[in-house]
Structures are given as C-alpha cells and as structure tokens.
Design a protein around this nucleic acid. Structure first.
Lengths: 119, 119
DNA sequence: ATGACTGTGTAGTAATCACTACACACCCCG
DNA sequence: CGGGGTGTGTAGTGATTACTACACAGTCAT
C-alpha cells in the first residue's frame, strides 16, 4: 500500500488525454492545479510522496476524481472529516471501531438510515 | 480551540497529585511517559504544541485519561481510526458527513444498533 | 533547423515537527 | 548549609513536509 497514488494519477491523466483530446499534459494539469510540472512528474512516478491536501484536491478536480478517494490513496483523511470527529471524539471513535469489521452493505445501510431519518 | 491541551494536562496532573499522594510531579510523569521534564512543562503551559501521537497516548495512560479524548484535544485523530476510514473512504466520508449535524443521542443510537446487530 | 511541445533531472529551501540536553533558581528538610 | 526535591529557561538538532526554480533532452511539425 505504499504508493499506488502516483501511478493511479498517471493512468487517469493519460486516459483523459486520449478521451478529451489534449490539454492533459503534465504541464497543463500541473499548471491548472497550481504545481510545478516536474513536481507532478515525480509524484506520478512515485519519486515524491503524494502532495498536501490542497494539492490533492486540486488534482482530483482537474482529473475528475473523487477527492475523498484520491486523498485516501494519498494516505490522508480529509481535514473536514477530521474536524467532525474531533468535536465528538469518543462518540465517533466508538462508532468507527464498531463499523471496522462490518461489511460494506451494513455500513451503507446505516448511512441510508441516518439520511432518511425514518426512525 | 487552539490550545486547551496543555492546561488540561496540568489540571489533571495536579488533581492526581492531590488525590494519589505524590509521584505526579512533572519529572515523574515525564519520566514514565518517556519525555524530558522541561518539554512536558512547556507543553503544559502551551509554549510548545502538543506532542506526537505516541507521546499523547503515553500521557493519557499515565494521567488516566481517554486516549481518544486527549488526542482530540491535541488536534489529532487516532491513527488506527484513520486506517479504518482509509480502507473505505467514500463509505465513511458519506457516513461522517451525514452524522455531522446529528445530535449526540442519534449518533449513539446508531452505535448501539450496530453493536447489538439486531437488525 | 527552428520553435514548440513533451517529460524529466538536479538542486535547493523554508517551515514545521518532535523532540533532547543541560543548566538554573527556588524551596524545604535535616 | 548542603542535598534533595520542585518547575522552568535556553539552545540546538535531525527528520519530514511540501514544495519551487531552472535546465536539459527528446519528438514533431513547419
């Protein structure tokens, strides 16, 4: 699990390049995301660790990826989620540890229950 | 919210000192937690930011505090919780954002539901 | 063969993190 | 008055984080 982040970025960028014509060179993407091209290049080849949260979000935006997923690949938990947890640490710690070994569909059911609020 | 961490530590340490006789000087606690006394002193007075996760956990242990709560005061989310989230980022992101504005009792009900598994 | 791209290599940096090592001043007991 | 305890001030350090700046080599079209 150390670094599928970079290669994943590269694949996605090249996929978009073949689909959406051009504008998806290292330079273009880096430019729009506010990074140096060589930095992005190194990240894509995993010669540099994933960048900070802001940069990851910018890349997710440019490459049309889910920010939470890309952040996870970068080994980071979105800071807004952290804030939610930090407000009620015991509560959320308990919940998350409880859900740790539950299958996806069980977690999803909980999500829906809360969202629909029919209880 | 920048730094009630230090003062909170100090209060708890002094509380324990008056209760449990001695062994709760800066030196003793720092020693048992594996830190330099002056470092702990500075942390307690918020002249230094809270220490790393390992040290926070050690302090929680020595001062008989809930690690999750103390970590939260230090602005950190327990790394084991992060790992759980990172395995299924979309799912947990959704769940946490859904619960963000729910009152404590609603979150607690979910915890119990999952734990009792009677559904 | 020049210009405009492509990606990439080298080097350096400013900031923050997480500390340690040591010395000092004060107080109290014997 | 000295030896133990209290807390604290000063200084410095090694690692990691998160980058930037710039130059270079290859490819392709005109």
């Amino acid at each position: 699990m150390p670094a599928p982040f970079g290669p994943f970025l590269r694949r996605q960028r090249e996929r978009l390049r073949t689909q959406r014509g051009e504008d998806f060179s290292v330079r273009q993407v880096a430019g729009r995301a506010g990074l140096e091209p060589s930095y992005l290049s190194k990240i894509e080849r995993a010669l540099q660790p994933p960048p900070g949260e802001a940069a990851v979000r910018a890349l997710a935006r440019e490459l049309e990826l889910d920010p939470d997923v890309l952040l996870a690949l970068a080994g980071k938990v979105s800071s807004d989620l952290q804030k939610v947890i930090l407000r009620r640490p015991q509560l959320f710690a308990q919940l998350i540890r409880e859900l740790k070994n539950q299958p996806d569909h069980a977690v999803l059911r909980v999500v829906r229950e809360v969202r629909d609020g029919d209880w």
